[in-house]
């Protein structure tokens, strides 16, 4: 039971006039349930691209992503739908995570509709979710612009949790927040992981954050992944 990246490479450009650029080559690692794999490295080395590939939002130039031994590329529609629920991604900018023209309530209820959750259960699920992330129900009536970065990042995590994922790719989840809020979000992530047994791929350039959160750490540098803590 794991989410694996096997020999994943990513190249940009057509190759004409030397425009081909290899971002990273033959990167392999594994995410385990209930554990965190920390991915760090300098800016522009393709950490976020690797995260998007693992989350299935972008396809690699070569290599495969396997969920419980099932390759992502060969998945049938039903399997892919299941993959979409199981592997989620949380983005860097919390202010950009919710549609600015929708109230939070609407964004949350859309996810519950997607899950075919009966209308009678939706309110209960939303209440439980808010309890987990530690926010009052008043936030539901607000627009994203009326909430703080920390609140939005909590809600982004809460919305993801409604899908009951097995793995979450956390793409710099705290870098847009100030230090005190960063700590709150990291503790919340740890608490959720302990309760739900979710595996994280934590992408960050902040070594302290990576060391605090991760059991295993990899450094993506010059197109190669070096394991620092295994």
């Amino acid at each position: 039971m794991a989410l694996k990246a096997e020999n994943v490479s990513k190249t940009y450009g057509s190759g004409l006039l030397g425009s081909r650029k290899c971002i990273f080559r033959e990167v392999s690692f594994e995410l385990e349930p209930g554990k965190t794999f920390g991915l760090m490295g300098p800016s522009g080395e393709g950490k976020s691209t690797l995260g998007r590939i693992v989350a299935g939002l972008e396809s690699p130039t070569s290599g495969t992503i396997l969920l419980n031994g099932n390759p992502l590329l060969g998945m049938k529609k039903a399997e892919y739908t299941a993959f979409r629920r199981r592997v989620q991604m949380m983005f860097q900018d919390p202010t950009d995570s919710f549609n600015p023209r929708k109230r939070i309530e609407q964004s949350i209820s859309e996810v519950l509709k997607l899950l075919n959750s009966p209308e009678s259960k939706r309110l209960q699920s939303t209440k439980e979710m808010l309890k987990t992330i530690g926010l009052p129900k008043e936030v539901l009536a607000r627009y994203p612009s009326q909430l703080s970065g920390g609140q939005l990042q909590r809600l982004a995590l809460g919305r993801i949790l409604l899908l009951e994922p097995e793995y979450i790719v956390l793409d710099e989840p705290t870098s847009a927040l100030d230090v005190s809020v960063q700590a709150q979000i990291l503790h919340l992530l740890k608490k959720v992981q302990a309760e739900e047994g979710i595996g994280y791929l934590l992408i960050s350039h902040d070594e302290a954050v990576i060391r605090f959160m991760s059991e295993r750490i990899g450094m993506l540098k010059k197109g190669k992944l070096d394991m620092i803590r295994t």
């Binding site: 989350a55 299935g56 939002l57 739908t81 979409r84 629920r85 989620q88 991604m89 983005f91 860097q92 900018d93 950009d96 995570s97 919710f98 549609n99 600015p100 023209r101 929708k102 964004s107 859309e110 996810v111 997607l114 982004a156 919305r159 993801i160 899908l163």
Partner: peptide, 26 residues
């Protein structure tokens, strides 16, 4: 390329839903 569209794709919403519900109002 906005985060909320990427999130919607990641959560498995259909392209039609994303176009009608997330992109069109904007």
């Amino acid at each position: 390329e906005a985060g909320y569209v990427k999130s919607a794709r990641c959560m498995g919403f259909s392209s039609f839903h994303i176009m009608v519900s997330d992109i069109f109002p904007n």
